[in-house]
C-alpha cells in the first residue's frame, strides 16, 4: 500500500486529534459518573437531614422548656 506524503501528514495530525478526542470522551464519561454519584450522595444526605430534623425537633422543645 502506498501513501502520499500529504496523506501521511494528515494521518499524523489525525492520530493526535483522535487521541485527544478519545481522552476527552473518557473524561466526559467519568464526569457523568461523578455527577451521578454526587446526586446519589445528595439524596442520601437529604434523607438523613429530614430524619435528623424530625427526631431533633422534640429535643429542641424540651431544651427550650428547661
Amino acid at each position: 500500500m502506498s501513501w502520499s506524503q500529504a496523506e501521511l501528514v494528515a494521518a499524523a495530525y489525525g492520530v493526535v486529534f483522535v487521541f485527544v478526542l478519545v481522552y476527552v470522551a473518557i473524561i466526559a464519561a467519568k464526569l457523568v459518573r461523578l455527577q451521578r454519584e454526587t446526586a446519589e450522595l445528595l439524596e442520601v444526605a437529604r434523607g438523613r437531614e429530614a430524619v435528623v430534623r424530625s427526631t431533633a425537633a422534640p429535643v429542641g422543645e424540651v431544651s427550650e422548656g428547661v
Binding site: 485527544v20 473524561i27 467519568k30 464526569l31 461523578l34 454519584e37 450522595l41 442520601v44 444526605a45 438523613r48
Partner: peptide
C-alpha cells in the same frame, strides 16, 4: 494542552477520592 489535560485529570481523580470519602462518611 498537556497542562490542561493534567489539571482536568487531577481534578477528576481528586473529586473521585473526595466522593468516596464522602460516601463513607454518609453511610
Amino acid at each position: 494542552l498537556a497542562y490542561v489535560l493534567y489539571r482536568v485529570e487531577l481534578a477528576g481523580k481528586r473529586l473521585d477520592a473526595d466522593l468516596r470519602e464522602l460516601r463513607e462518611v454518609l453511610q
